[in-house]
Amino acid sequence: MYRRYRRASQIAVFALMFAVPVLNLYEIYAITGTFYAINIGGLGIADPVVILQAMFAAGELTVPLLSAAIFPVLLALLLGRVWCGWMCPYHLLSDVACAARLAAATRILKKAEPASPAVKRSFSANMWRFGFLLVGTAAAGAIGIPVLNYLSAPGITSTEAMIFVKERTFSLEIGFIAVLLCLEFTLIPRFWCRFFCPTGAFLSLFRSSFTLRIVSETKNPAVPCCKESPCLSACPMGLQPYREGGNLLCTNCARCIDACPHQRLKFDGFLTARPR
């Protein structure tokens, strides 16, 4: 049941990506910007990784810089990485690529394949992500330009949408998105979101005890509660949802909640503060 809302949210954000430059062409400037930094009716919202890099690259910390990063950080504190699961335009493209991969595997190769190869250790995936973020930020500080911006999948996607609307063309960076999608289709599904994406890595740092998360209502959540475990193959991040609902990788996409045949997985967090 969450699937419908999630798709609606994703498609709305994807449409917004094209709507903003169209509105700007008609000289309506209520919303301006791309997903690097967007301004909605005077409220400036920026990708916090971009702000982090600008701080290191320019060596300064200003109020407008910090205030732009507050909203995404607050959202991540309350709802977890919902930006990734529910809004990110690249994640939607990745969803499409992985669905195509699954369809190709079942129809053409005649073999069932999980949406994502189950990774036994989410720890290593997290270390990859944070290492990449750390190296990128250090590089930005060292050479004085925000280098991770060249590798920001949602930012590039929305910039390309803007360039397409304004100039009916694409710039070279779309090749990066194309390469990522091809790799996700052929080799490792979701590898960018799981192992590299700096924005997702930074947002997941703000997961706290009251952040929205997935909990299992079984007596012993450490072991799978049924043999089929459809939640395992449903999780795009390769987690074990019955056990790792609060993992830093989790995007709160609620695929596992929809997949569970026994309705044992539920959202938990600041919304449903219960004594423990």
Partner: peptide, 19 residues
């Protein structure tokens, strides 16, 4: 220019708004 290259986050908002 040096500060600009660090501070500019390539959001292209200036580009969108230029009439």
């Amino acid at each position: 220019e040096r500060r600009f290259m660090g501070l500019c986050i390539r959001c292209n908002r200036c580009l969108e708004v230029c009439p």
